[in-house]
Amino acid sequence: MPIRTLDTNALAEQTGNLYESLVVLSKRARQVASKTKGELDQKLSYFEDLSLDPAEELRSNEDQLRISLEYEKRPKSPDMAVDEFESGELYFRNPTRTDNDF
């Protein structure tokens, strides 16, 4: 995936502060990564409970590899967070600010 440069001024506009925008992005990226990891772990947990003979174990390993590669091809969590932020899909708030501060 190619590297994409971001307009820092556009990122700062949404929150009023570039660093606050980066905090929002990093928190959302962690949420997305955690959700994705949970989904992957749930799919792979099926294979942990199986006790197979060696011939079936090879097939099981291939299935696990296929599932893992499927998740590797998905967009990365920081990219998804930036896309959501830029399109205005993210809801965020600063609990220390009042409505008059922004």
Rank of each mutant, 00 (worst) to 15 (best):
M1R: 02
M1G: 12
I3K: 01
I3G: 09
R4A: 07
T5G: 03
T5F: 13
D7Y: 03
T8W: 11
N9S: 10
N9E: 15
N9K: 05
N9A: 13
L11A: 04
L11F: 04
A12V: 06
E13C: 10
G16M: 09
N17A: 03
L18R: 07
Y19N: 12
Y19Q: 12
E20I: 02
S21N: 08
L22I: 12
L22M: 11
L22T: 00
V23M: 06
V23I: 14
V23K: 01
S26W: 09
A29L: 06
R30L: 09
V32L: 15
V32A: 03
S34F: 07
K35L: 05
E39P: 05
E39G: 09
L40S: 05
L40Y: 10
Q42H: 15
K43G: 00
K43Q: 14
L44K: 04
S45G: 12
Y46C: 01
Y46N: 07
F47H: 05
F47Q: 01
E48M: 05
E48D: 15
D49C: 01
D49K: 04
D49L: 00
D49Q: 08
L52V: 13
L52C: 10
P54G: 01
R59Q: 12
S60Y: 00
N61Q: 13
N61Y: 11
E62L: 14
D63R: 08
D63P: 10
Q64L: 01
Q64K: 13
R66L: 02
I67Y: 01
I67C: 01
L69N: 14
Y71L: 05
Y71Q: 04
Y71N: 04
E72W: 05
E72F: 11
K73M: 10
R74Q: 15
R74G: 10
R74K: 14
K76F: 11
S77Q: 05
P78F: 05
D79F: 11
M80L: 15
M80H: 00
A81N: 04
V82A: 03
D83M: 05
D83I: 02
E84M: 11
S87W: 01
G88K: 01
G88L: 03
G88D: 07
L90T: 02
L90P: 01
Y91W: 12
Y91R: 02
Y91S: 09
F92S: 06
R93K: 09
R93G: 07
R93M: 08
P95D: 10
T96R: 02
T96G: 04
T98Y: 03
D99A: 08
D99Y: 09
D101S: 12
F102N: 14
